[in-house]
Design a protein around this nucleic acid. Structure first.
Length: 466
DNA sequence: ATGTCC
């Protein structure tokens, strides 16, 4: 028996000497080498079973090293989630609560909240708000970085644009579909394309052309552009009470943001190989690392790019109408912000949650045929100054295709006199929670200022009618 | 959400 046999078992440092000393004692007692090596392997596997006897010194050294490792294992989940508040718990599926619980066990988590539109997503649930310290979670922001809403209210009666006119404007000035961009000669410039950040990372340089191509487009899934009637009960932002023509859009950072999200999620996962499997998609990047800095820069750019998409859509329509909007409101609902929470600067992730600091305006849409609401934040600290970002799905896309009858979907639209361009049954109003209930569950988070009833809605047609 | 693996 010599040091080679010991190191071959994987012992290191002082443990080699301790193992060798114990092995010598066993040899003197007449034990065979193979037997001793098997015993050493067992001590190594479960040192807690050998705290008495001649392997005690080795066992205690191994256990001390284990404890040290745990102490420095930054990826260990807390045994129990931190406390957090849930709004509209009765509206939320168990899977979304389970995902939020996992997020609240991350060592970097400090506070969180769940909004009443919550449902299961990748990593953090949609409708999840999570405050972390010194780190950002790519999937805490989500795939569609900077996904956002914008409303333009025109000082004109809703009836001043008929359905036919609205259809024409949407078809001419919006573009939908995965991979879709504007033709070269139709593209418009925007200051976001002059941001030096595009040239600061290989990934951003690579995605620049795609971003130029897709600027001012709407994408697919639940994204939409719709004309409707905005009703304001009390004066707001220089607008008198009344009913007005309005344009509401839901769009994000398109392929650019999706690829940023994918790239940094894979990077974060690779940097946390020992993270518990349940939290794999919640892998984070330290903000004091190059990777964390790069993500923050790319995420910020994607957030600005998404808002630029809305600006171009609304700009094209305003130009066609020959009229500037009397009221404009926009908000991002998939992003991370540096925010002071309880006297500390934390990273607040809102993944499908509307910023609702005191006095801040936001938009909460219902569905293709249900009202959207203009809201004003109440700055509730327990929600980390957040509210829901919509009604939230009550069934997945595939479940919706099975459960909802096409006739019921069409009847719902007809009853509300909604004209739909594109759109699939997976986005039918019946696939969503009742937005009125979701709004009622968060009266302490936001005040409703006005409502918007969609009338002519454009969405991606998906694979259905290509 | 995204031409669903840069």
């Amino acid at each position: 028996m010599n040091g080679k046999h010991i190191t071959k078992l994987g012992f290191t440092g002082a443990d080699i000497g301790l193992a060798l000393a114990a092995a010598t004692l066993r040899e003197r007692a007449g034990a065979e080498r193979d037997e001793i090596l098997k015993e050493l392997a067992r001590v190594q596997r479960s040192p807690e079973s050998y705290t008495g006897g001649l392997y005690a010194n080795l066992a205690e050294s191994l256990m001390a090293a284990q404890a040290e490792e745990l102490l420095h294992d930054d990826d260990m989940l807390r045994p129990e989630p931190l406390d957090y508040r849930v709004w509209g718990r009765e509206l939320i599926e168990p899977g979304a609560l389970a995902q939020m619980n996992t997020a609240m066990r991350l060592p970097i988590s400090r506070a969180g909240a769940l909004m009443p539109d919550a449902h299961v997503g990748y990593g953090l649930p949609i409708g999840g708000v999570l405050a972390t310290e010194g780190a950002v979670i790519p999937y805490g922001v989500g795939v569609d970085i900077g996904c956002s809403m914008r409303l333009s209210v025109y000082a004109a009666p809703a009836a001043s644009l008929d359905a036919r006119g609205a259809v024409g404007l949407l078809q001419k000035h919006t573009r939908f579909g995965a991979g879709v961009g504007w033709d070269r000669r139709e593209r418009l410039h925007h200051d976001v394309l002059d941001d030096p950040a595009w040239h600061s990372q290989p990934l951003l340089r690579h995605l620049f052309d795609k971003a130029v191509n897709q600027l001012g487009t709407s994408g697919s899934g639940n994204h939409f552009a719709e004309f409707g009637t905005f009703t304001l009960p009390a004066a707001q932002g220089g607008l008198e009470p009344g009913s007005y023509l309005a344009l509401l859009t839901h769009s994000g950072s398109r392929g650019f943001g999706a690829q940023v999200a994918g790239h940094f999620t894979r990077l974060a996962e690779s940097l946390h190989p020992h993270l518990d499997a349940s939290a794999k998609k919640l892998a984070w990047l330290g903000l004091d690392t190059q990777e964390g800095h790069d993500y923050w820069q790319a995420m910020t750019l994607a957030g600005e790019y998404a808002l630029a998409n809305h600006e171009q859509i609304h700009g094209r329509v305003a130009k066609a109408l020959g009229e500037a909007p009397a009221l404009s409101v926009s908000n991002s609902h998939n992003l991370a912000w540096k925010q002071e929470v309880g006297g500390r600067e934390l990273i607040v992730h809102r993944k499908g949650a509307t910023p609702a600091a005191s006095g801040v305006l936001g938009l909460i849409p219902g569905s293709m045929a249900d009202p959207a609401y203009l809201v004003r934040g109440r700055g509730q600290p327990d929600s980390l100054e957040s509210a829901s970002h919509g009604a939230g799905r009550q069934m997945g896309r595939k479940a919706a295709e099975k459960a909802i009858a096409k006739a019921d979907w069409k009847a719902y639209l007809a009853e509300r006199n909604v004209t739909l361009l594109g759109g699939g049954i997976d986005e039918a109003p019946q696939a969503y929670k009742r937005v009125e209930e979701v709004i009622a569950a968060q009266t302490d988070l936001v005040e409703v200022l006005g409502s918007f009833q969609p009338q002519v809605v454009r969405m991606d047609s998906g694979s259905e009618d290509i």
